[in-house]
Design a protein around this nucleic acid. Structure first.
Lengths: 205, 205, 205, 205
DNA sequence: ACTTAATCGAGACGGTACGTCGCGTCTTCAC
DNA sequence: GTGAAGACGCGACGTACCGTCTCGATTAAGT
């Protein structure tokens, strides 16, 4: 029992270069800013990273896997939109949606989001694993803010917060993919309905 | 989708075969049940439809356009999930989500949804036009049901119903793409929050 | 009976482009002047010919086959060395060897000869067929000159002239491959021994 | 391959290196029996020899060099065809050609001959040096036999014997490369013409 | 009936990217 | 301080599709 597995994975030969691995991710992130998933090629990534094509295929099984790891591990400068916590959930969410609309609907972010989806929408089981695990990163922020509101008694307890974040976040993700930023009234309604829906019984606007 | 012919006597030579056009759509629908967008090739479609490749390119500009028209014009047996109108919005939506989960999360539907997204997520402006216009077909059903509830006074008036349908529908679409059906509690929370959020002032469960 | 088989090989689809076929051979000939067989690539040939790589693989099974057809069908400007017929076999052969040494041992010709051998020395049965059929083109000239001498009674009849041409020609071919032109005395001895060996009985120098 | 004697225990330098060197040559010889030069890879040699790739590149500059050294230094079981010296040159040469045809035209020998040529036909100057120096090994035997005949007065003196060996040997080498054994009459003519061509003046068959 | 012209299925075309393989070099660990 | 093992950068391989072009055959509409 004390004897761990080790003899089987005994280091032989030159170890894989973590530097190359990282260089590929960074090169991919750099390229994804300006070109679409379709136009991105493994050869281009290899050239940009100063790496042999085979090295890429040694780490990832195909282009989709490279792109997914690049975007999911946050190699990009695609900053998370800030979600404040002033104690007023509705106001915070409205602030969030506004900055979302103004900051996230840039050509570069839209392109990356599309690349993420294009890479994710493969029939590969490994891919599904990774995606359903990581989900979309923004989700974490939202869940955290909602939990804080819950503890503070701002919203009624017991709701499945992942469903609530989906109701709030997923519409923005789809609008992002389509490329058309939603109007302000649309966003306000979204926040309003969800916040109302979460209010403790008897509360009113 | 296809460009119309002017009523003028420009019609010279052999007319385009509407049968071929339809055969392509049907062949595509047939193939999309079992293979992914990536594995689908124009040559394969042409072979399945018993049609020349050029005939496809005479009607559509590329593979994405064929797939989009196939899925958007409902060539598939991907039936719309029924949304009843009993007068009880919450109950109806819960019924809808349940059948959604049990009927829509089949491998074939998931595959088609992914193909739709893969085809839609191109940088092509024409594609965006079509998609943002058609949106997803289910949306229509939802909006209609909500409007009926609004008229009946079941929900408070003045809400942007497209935002509400987004809050309800988009989360299901994303779960569909990922391939994992949501749990029942998740769906219940989603419906509950939205329905509460729409209730007229002062009402309670 | 007048009705030939024809329906089976009925022309369907776009016919293969003989122009492309020829362009490949010419491009290969052009490239072989300056670069070695090893450095020659199918991609380079395709680029030089303005042809898709697949077109090359549609006509030939590999690089060796392209090179062989190029050299064997005489696409190159590798002119045959002249072999005069003055009636004096020994003098004619000496003239021939001299021009051989001075004209054939150029870098370009040496390179082509090596390419021919490199391409020919594959284990492919089809290749052997082609080579043993075509042999080396010079052989024809020699056989013809010897036959003329035989008819004229210059040499004793009944010899296997292909063996004689081998004795005379093959040594030059091997020297060509090695790249070192033989000395004049060497060539003289070669011609001398063979011509003496062919003389009718009782003749002397 | 067994462990070396430990006479000198000061083996700080290269305890196994000469063994590795030899192992590579033997492995190459073993492989060349069955696979062509093209299909032979350095990695395969290394694996067969139980040696690291770098060890090969420490001794030779590339694959061609390994193959050349293997074949030129006679690591193979490609035995030299025996050339008797009974005092009758014509009879000896006929014996030699006959055993040549029956023994040398085996698939294994043909394959090795082709590999030798494939390796030799590189543009590398060092390679040319080695080849033109070593020539083909059989040459030595022939020259020796001819010199013996010359001393014995069997043939007229003063001929450039390297040219004569070329006339006799090179045709066999080329037939070997093509892979088709010559007929008996062909060989007889070859020997006959050369031997006659070497006879002292006035002699006759 | 006869031309004209656009269509049809078929498949080759010039390209581009794929994923693999081999070269010759570099880098680790074990002996 | 070598040597095996094997990853590295590089680049060619042969294949697969793309979207276009070119065949002979087919099909109306306009002579």
């Amino acid at each position: 029992m004390a004897d761990q597995v080790q003899a089987e994975s005994r280091q032989r030969g030159r170890p894989r270069s973590e530097a190359s691995h990282q260089a590929v991710l960074e090169a991919t992130a750099r390229l994804l800013c300006s070109i679409s998933y379709e136009d991105l090629t493994v050869e281009r990534i290899a050239a940009e990273a100063g790496v042999g094509k085979q090295t890429i295929y040694r780490w990832w099984k195909n282009k989709a896997a490279v792109v997914l790891e690049t975007l999911v591990t946050g190699q990009t400068d695609m900053e998370l939109v800030d979600l404040p916590d002033t104690g007023d959930l509705r106001a915070d969410l409205l602030t969030w949606t506004k900055s979302m609309i103004s900051e996230a609907f840039t050509p570069s972010t839209i392109s990356m989001a599309r690349s993420l989806v294009a890479a994710g929408v493969q029939e590969d089981p490994a891919t599904e694993e990774l995606l359903s695990g990581a989900a979309f990163r923004d989700t974490g922020l939202l869940v955290q803010r909602l939990r804080s509101a819950e503890e503070r008694g701002e919203i009624r307890p017991g709701a499945d917060l992942t469903a609530v974040t989906a109701a709030l976040g997923d519409p923005f993700i789809l609008r992002l993919l389509v490329g058309h930023p939603p109007g302000e009234r649309w966003a306000q309604t979204l926040v309003d309905v969800v916040v109302r829906g979460l209010q403790p019984q008897g509360a009113s606007d």
